[in-house]
Amino acid sequence: MVDALQSLLASSRGRSSLFGAIQYASLLSAGLSEALLQGTTTLSRSLRNLYRALSDCRTLLRFGDSVSLLLKPGAYRNSSPKDLIWIIDTISDLANRFYYPFEHIAWAIDKRVIPFGESSAKWWNRSSYFSLISSICALAKTVLSWIDIIKRKGELPSSDRRQLRKEEFLVTVDFFTNVARLIVSVHYLPDGMLWGTKLSSTSLGLLGMISSLVSLWKMIDEF
């Protein structure tokens, strides 16, 4: 267990998921605190400050990921189209290549790191659109995996289906996790688009925390 935690913290993806769980847990706690105490308190303000600080921290951590992603050859460069999974992977790869840089430009404008004359809102919106595309691709890929498992189960005798149970469980977990991520992605869209900006702090914090904790659990299980 200790070795798994060390490996988790040694990876940028692991640190980002850990900070994400704490980030959304602080937002959830702030929302619950304000609901129970019927107003903003010193505690809720501190929790929201922690949420924003960890958000900045994760954005900086993703900077390294964005550079490596831009330098990494895409699936569409190394393969030929074979099936729907390849198409989804290609769209997701392209979406991520735009999502990260736009996010960093928006963040840098907010922090006055780069002297752009325009508002950062446009860049945040562009980043949100590509994040939504990536979330849709992840959910679609999970649904296809689910369908594949159901087909394989139908082709196997009852005595041999046990080996698919763990795989089916993991895909089911992925499905609900990706649904949560999709809901969160839509929340970050501009106001007026679906439920953009409409989620409460409690709902956003709960969904984000669950998504991050599941990611952590899966990474620990891999080590």
Rank of each mutant, 00 (worst) to 15 (best):
R162V: 13
F175A: 00
L144G: 02
L164N: 07
A180H: 13
V171A: 06
K141D: 03
S159H: 13
D148P: 10
L144N: 03
S145I: 07
R165F: 13
L139Y: 15
R152G: 12
Q163W: 08
L170G: 02
T177F: 02
Q163C: 05
S158N: 08
P157K: 14
W146R: 10
V143S: 04
R181V: 03
E167S: 11
T177D: 01
T142F: 00
K141M: 06
L156I: 08
E155L: 15
T142E: 00
K153Q: 12
D148W: 11
R181S: 02
F175T: 00
R161A: 06
S145Q: 15
F175Y: 13
V171R: 10
I147C: 04
N178E: 08
L170V: 05
L164S: 07
E168F: 00
V171I: 10
L164V: 09
D160F: 12
E168T: 02
G154Q: 02
T172Y: 00
S145V: 06
S158E: 13
S159Y: 15
R181P: 01
K153R: 14
S158C: 04
R152V: 09
V179F: 12
S145L: 11
I150H: 09
T142R: 00
P157I: 09
R152I: 06
R165Q: 15
S159K: 09
K141E: 02
L156Q: 14
A140K: 08
V179N: 02
N178Y: 15
I147L: 11
G154H: 01
T177L: 01
R181F: 09
K166D: 07
D160E: 08
D148A: 11
L139C: 12
F169Y: 14
A140C: 12
D148H: 11
E167T: 13
D174E: 09
I147V: 09
E155T: 10
I150Y: 09
E168A: 03
V171S: 08
V173L: 09
R161M: 07
N178A: 04
R181W: 15
K141S: 04
F169K: 05
R162E: 14
E155Y: 11
V171F: 02
L144C: 03
P157W: 14
K166F: 06
V143D: 03
R181N: 05
T142A: 01
F169L: 09
S145N: 14
K141Y: 12
V143Q: 04
L170K: 05
F175W: 15
G154N: 02
D174W: 11
R161E: 04
R165I: 13
T172F: 03
G154V: 01
L156C: 11
R161Y: 13
L170D: 06
L156P: 08
R181L: 05
K151Y: 03
D148M: 07
Q163N: 09
R161P: 04
D174P: 03
F169P: 03
I147F: 08
I147D: 10
A140R: 07
R181I: 04
R162I: 13
D160W: 08
E168Y: 01
R165C: 07
I150C: 08
K151R: 12
A138K: 08
W146I: 02
R162S: 13
F176N: 00
K141F: 06
P157V: 10
V143M: 05
P157H: 14
T177M: 01
S158W: 14
S159L: 06
F176E: 00
F169Q: 05
I150Q: 10
S158D: 09
R152T: 09
S145T: 11
R152N: 15
L164H: 12
